[in-house]
Design a protein around this nucleic acid. Structure first.
Lengths: 124, 124
DNA sequence: GCGTATTGCTACGATAATTGTAGCAACGGA
DNA sequence: TCCGTTGCTACAATTATCGTAGCAATACGC
């Protein structure tokens, strides 16, 4: 087995209730978290490759997310280097996948780029 | 139909590639976004009730997320007040739901709260 | 009409998260 | 030994988020 990171115990924001779903939603709601899972859906990537895949996101956050995801048991650092999904992580990734097709439909369901601001008559 | 918010065009971070999945992952990767979808899974909630459901999160962010989610077409402000999911939003929510059961298994699959820091021997 | 309560929403200073750039130590191949 | 790559960190600058307070509009009972 590959190296394992700490635990998931680093108090996950918004998880004060102790309900696992809240902890998970919070963990996945941090920047680049979902993206990282997405980019690792295929073969493992080196930290550098992952960074490239994530639009050159700052290594600081990527490392932070990577550590958190490792502690959560979703990601692991392979023995030969390179980050990959654990079995658990792949399971989670399976639930993120369908977002792909959804996103496509979402895009086309949008009345195309109307590029206004937040200053419209504003209803209610 | 209920009131609609602006467009989804407010350049979604990480969506520079134009790939819808990236825009979606980024949108959902902002704080409270997933949580809001989760809390709205049932009946519509007033802004106040939603705030309560979200551990009294600051109204500033909630309003920001709510606006973004409305512009994305996932959430709408009902005619009689109160936020609810659109058809599209409910679809999206359906993909978030399974995370609930996953989170439960995830919790129990964890070697129980070892509460160490980020200072372990640190492998690699 | 008058007070009161609720709604959606905003202002604003304080705090925490993220960004960008640079660079380090460890390892491997030539 | 000299590169080149790996995972990872430092640090200042910029953003995002928090927490508290409050506003305008609406709806109620009186």
């Amino acid at each position: 087995m590959a190296k394992q990171a700490g635990s998931k115990t680093r108090s996950v924001r918004g998880s004060r209730t102790g309900r696992p779903i809240m902890a998970l939603l919070d963990l996945l709601g941090r920047r680049w978290a979902l993206r990282i899972l997405w980019e690792l859906r295929g073969e493992p990537l080196t930290s550098r490759a992952l960074r490239t895949a994530c639009d050159e996101a700052s290594p600081t956050v990527l490392q932070a997310r990577l550590t958190e995801l490792r502690e959560a048991g979703f990601v692991e650092l392979g023995d030969g280097g390179g980050y990959g999904l654990t079995a658990l992580g792949r399971e989670l990734c399976e639930m993120v996948m369908p977002l792909h097709r959804f996103a496509e439909r979402w895009k086309s369901s949008s009345p195309s780029p109307r590029l206004r601001g937040r200053d419209e008559p504003r209803s209610r």
